[in-house]
Amino acid sequence: MSPEKLADAYRLMKTIREFEERMRSEYQQGKLPGFIHIYRNQEAIAVAACLDMTNEDYIASTHRGHGHCIAKGCEIEAMLLELACKEDGLCNGKGGSMHIADMSKGMLGANAIVGGGPPIAAGAALTAKTLGNGAISMAFIGDGASDQGTVAESLNLAVVLQLPMIFMYENNRYAEFTKSPKPDGRIAERAGAFGMPAEVIDGSDFFAMYDACQRAITRGREGGGPTAIEAVCNRYYGHFEGDAQAYRDQDELAQERAVSDPIPRFLADPRAAALTPEKVAEIDAAIMAEIDRGFDVTYAAADPTPDKLYTDVYIQYEGRLR
């Protein structure tokens, strides 16, 4: 991996980490609306998945989507404006955390409907296949979401149509307050049964994730059809911010937290040796400055004016909206 790419990978993972920690603390102070779902300790998955994508490639995200946005190249400031529901946000403040999208980056939306994303990603893959432009499409799917009928239908469609698509499962072993009853690997097994290569990867091992994603992306771009990856990881915080995870065994949680942090593991890997401590410090400082700046801009920004309630329902409409 080139030093530039290495630095990018680190910068993106660390940006997600700091972004989410800051989101959390601002949310706890009551400064942000809605529900937010924090992505901590899953950073390596989004970053490895999107590092070799361009703006022409697509992702469909989930309710836990901030990390996917950052990895896909969404601007921090525009994201923050959206998460605070401000007029200049990515979706003019109308989507918020669970519906944030950036079409210019091929980011087809977070999704508040569990299992809503995969059919959309399959459609984007169909566009790429039809246009023959070599683009690929990826759906992020939680372990809980993996049971939805929409996911099974998309797996089947992707195989039948040989779509350039990747099913990126993030198995953090929890869906809301319920521990996954499935053993690790079961999700990949199920996807594989539809007739596509399916791998189980340690989701906190950035390099393993990156290699698997490269294989899947190359396959998709070359017309080899869909791939599934089950990234095994840990949900560090509660389901949404404010959920104290009282239902989890606290010793087990502490243990999982310690072993599942992808960032120190990345830095300690010999393959990251080209990233010097000085470079890391420089990247860190830039990240903190960017996030600080983003929040300053966000809190000074205007709320949408009331007339904005009625914009963008349609592109053109001859009827009455109120």
Binding site: C85, G93, G95, S97, M98, D303, K308, L309, V313, R322
Partner: peptide
């Protein structure tokens, strides 16, 4: 109104 429900609290 004949619109979706915005996430924006003021809207």
């Amino acid at each position: 109104p004949h619109t979706p429900v915005p996430a924006t609290p003021c809207l």
